[in-house]
């Protein structure tokens, strides 16, 4: 929307027709904090698995994480079916799926390490190498693309000073291109860790990055 007034985007609720807070739109006001042990077994696989705080050597499947894994496992007739959730859990803690992580997950589920590698590399959301504290995924698929997604992507690269897929020197940002994020009516859609930022235009980018660094500073 070329002549729209400057807005600080973040969610697609700010068109003036609804009186909603960001938490309302994002659902945070309703969903609340998700406990690490995962509350109900049926929903325990749904914990966000891209957190700012990660430790590549964090112990996996211990303590409350073990509890959560066991809840997840109880929902499937086969151990193999718990593979994606287990990898999600591992990525949540460690930030990426290293060969060592694949190996550990394989032993946990009684699968071969090669099999786990085959599965992990099939899915794009598993980071095969470490990424920045904020993984910025800019949709450049058709609906966003015809509305200027390429410029948004370029702006993120420019303002983070990174090359596509590389992590900024301060370890804060990794910018990648994403396929359709299913928010096509609100272009450009950018996913930053677990959050969707919608209606993003190139000139919004500095504000978004500032918001992220402010959040980091605030802890």
């Amino acid at each position: 929307m070329s002549d729209a007034p400057f807005r600080n985007p973040g969610w697609a609720g700010n068109t003036g027709e609804f009186d909603l807070s960001e938490d309302d739109v994002r659902g945070a006001a309703y969903a609340g904090e998700r406990p690490p042990e995962g509350r109900h077994p049926s929903t325990s696989a749904s914990y966000p698995f891209m957190l700012v705080e990660r430790d590549p050597y964090a112990p996996l499947f211990e303590g409350r994480h073990k509890e959560r894994y066991e809840k997840i496992r109880s929902r499937y007739p086969t151990a193999m079916a718990a593979l994606l959730p287990a990898l999600n859990l591992a990525q949540e803690l460690r930030g990426h799926i290293s060969p060592e992580t694949m190996d550990e997950v394989a032993s946990l589920l009684g699968l071969s390490s090669a099999y786990v590698r085959g599965v992990a590399t099939f899915y794009t959301m598993y980071n095969k190498r470490p990424v920045g504290r904020f993984l910025i995924q800019v949709c450049t698929n058709i609906s966003c693309n015809i509305c200027g997604a390429d410029e948004v992507l370029a702006a993120f690269l420019e303002h983070t000073g990174t090359e596509l897929g590389d992590t900024s020197d301060d370890g804060n940002f990794t910018v990648v291109e994403a396929e359709c994020l299913a928010a096509c009516g609100f272009p450009t859609c950018v996913q930053i860790n677990e959050r969707y930022f919608e209606d993003v235009s190139a000139r919004d980018v500095p504000n978004i990055l500032k918001r992220l660094t402010d959040e980091l500073a605030a802890g």
Partner: peptide, 12 residues
């Protein structure tokens, strides 16, 4: 997998 926020709402 990208639907983190959406999934939280559904989970609750």
């Amino acid at each position: 997998g990208e639907f983190f926020e959406t999934t939280q709402i559904l989970a609750r």
